[in-house]
Design a binder for these strands. Structure first.
Lengths: 351, 351
DNA sequence: TCTAGTATTGGAAACGTTTCCGGAAAACCG
DNA sequence: CGGTTTTCCGGAAACGTTTCCAATACTAGA
């Protein structure tokens, strides 16, 4: 391992000159920059991150916090995160920043873990997802002045930047479309009550129903994990509902797989016996009947998330003069067969 | 942010004494340790990781490398990883080490990324998964003397520790069982040819068939991604096979979901029209007919992986006198309905 | 040619921690 | 009680980098 000292000696320069050249400081000549760069690659010099961190107080890494263990938020969600993170990483790379996933063990409290990570100062900035309705992480990070961006909103508001999927549109358009198709008994799926998006979805679905003179029957609100398994459980619940809903609007992308499976085991075919609107994903691509679902560009969302974070970091703010980014990420409806118009031929099973 | 200096001044001690006390060095008295600890928590002192790193050359973090992006190895695999990582984290926490997932963007070459991570020395040790048949990462890490453990074997052998799932048993027992049930046209699923486990599975399946006087028909080898989608694609391929296999043994835990879906769309019912043996997972729990599959304790595997890594790190070797760990992780078969004994009533569809 | 300004450089301090080393005090032993 | 060992402590150097500051060399203007 060669350090800047030996590199400097080898070049017959002072270490300060070498450092300046390596970092493209304005007060270093192009000639020396070139010489230094060449020698550096020749000798295989790579700056020691710890030394750099110590001096500058930054680490050059951005963290994305997630929990490990069996009861993670939803298995299928991974595709989701992996695409978003890919976009984030793309932006960060441009600034030589690195993205790591901070893995909080299932045995450890998430808030404790965050505290530990922050005080060890292993990252310069953070992305937090699965934002809760009231989220202590937000106030904590604001308090510690750690730059962060929420992937999701929260009622805990410290003026932080966030980007959130447009669940308003998803909920409202789903309902409007289903009502237009003649449905009256419309169900929705919601995540755990803590999660903020559930409230957004709930409220907008209720309002949309209200605008058509309908109400949201509490028995048609199915709470479940946003996973295949969660969707399967919804199907089980639907089957035992006395007066079954004729349509359901889902609030996540994973559960539709399990929902289809569960419904079909009982001879209930989406698009014929029940209308389903959900979110598209690679896994929903092969569903039959094809899914009527909302599409969103996850990679681009990740890019936006990365840019929002950089905009909130003083060092990079001038490259991204965006101010505090608070953006609802657009979705577009892709019609399929699962909510077919020629519905309303209720088979016996719609008791 | 308070440093060790201010802490020392506040205690009227030298910083060396404080440092020793905080690290429970033998040459510090219990009395001072107590005083220091108390003052540290009272003042909210947390050691600066960068300073520590710089001095000691270690970072206190272990990395698990994975790729982000759309074409990741398999979405369902995540549950898999999340449980393994949970076990790893559990072990590491005992030694105040932290686990992070190193996210390699889809646009970046994995080997380049590894090189970058290592030279920036952001981790003290690594776990690499999806080990390939010939894996340059292994020789690179050995060359750089970075402690690591393979989650999976490879023909690239530098004496590194590894832990791998017992695909020998999975392949052989699957075959033996299917043959015992009277099957002769037995198919297997394999991942990309690069991946090492594919070769293990292939070879052992072939040998098991051979021991029964059967051969592995090349047309019954279905290559696919280890994902739901991959399983769905296998079903499509099965359907268009001239003389269809009567049984299939899967080499991953995710594809069975898509396989079931794809088969059932064509009226082919696992356990009646085709026998299926796979790997169990939370998502396979709700399959109907229930899956005959292999179970393995992922969390414990993670623990073993963590211990194997620590055993290979000089600093921790004395706590884990295991030498170089090379272990095939055991699996147990959980019988279900998908390979039911009362099979062999070939419907018309088994052309 | 001299001066003022600019471009580039080297020296040295600083970031926060650990650890080596010498020394002082205490404990032990005969 | 003298000497030897043990226990504990403080001073200072070191890890590798960045950056402030002063100094030098060069350029341009008069």
């Amino acid at each position: 391992m060669i350090g800047i000292k030996r590199l400097a000696k080898h070049l017959n320069m002072s270490i300060s000159t070498v450092s300046r050249a390596l970092n493209d400081r304005p007060d270093s000549s192009e000639a020396t920059r070139k010489r230094v760069r060449e020698a550096a690659t020749k000798l295989g010099y790579v700056p020691n991150q710890s030394g750099r961190n110590l001096r500058s107080g930054t680490t050059g890494t951005i963290g994305f916090m997630m929990k490990t263990g069996p009861e993670i938020i939803g298995q299928g969600h991974t595709h989701f995160f992996m695409n978003v993170l890919d976009g984030v990483q793309e932006v960060l790379l441009r600034h030589k920043l690195d993205l790591v996933a901070l893995l909080c063990a299932s045995t450890e409290d998430a808030d404790d873990y965050l505290r530990r990570v922050v005080s060890r100062s292993v990252v310069d900035g953070l992305i937090i997802s699965n934002t809760r309705r009231v989220d202590p992480r937000i106030s904590f990070l604001a308090d510690r002045k750690v730059p962060f961006v929420g992937f999701g909103r929260s009622t805990t508001d410290v003026g932080q930047p966030w980007i959130d999927i447009d669940f308003e549109t998803i909920a409202a358009e789903s309902i409007n479309r289903l009502v237009a198709h003649g449905h009256k008994r419309i169900a929705i799926s919601l995540p755990h009550d803590d999660i903020n998006l559930g409230h957004v979805f709930h409220e907008n679905a209720r309002n949309a129903l209200g605008s058509h003179g309908l109400t949201l029957d509490p028995q048609y609100i199915y709470r479940s994990l946003p996973s295949e398994t969660g969707g399967y459980e919804i199907a089980q619940k639907i089957v035992v509902t006395k007066i079954r809903p004729t349509a359901i609007a889902l609030s996540n992308e994973s559960s539709v797989i399990g929902l289809y499976r569960g419904l079909m085991e009982h001879g209930i075919l989406p698009g014929r016996d029940i209308a389903v609107i959900g979110l598209n994903s690679p896994n929903s691509r092969y569903l039959s009947p094809t899914l009527t679902g909302f599409h969103l560009s996850l990679h681009d969302l990740g890019v936006a998330l990365g840019e929002a974070l950089l905009a909130s970091m003083p060092q990079y703010a001038d490259a991204y003069p965006l101010g505090i980014v608070r953006k609802v990420w657009p979705v577009t409806l892709v019609p399929g067969e699962s909510d077919a118009l020629n519905f309303i031929k209720p088979k016996s099973l719609i008791a």
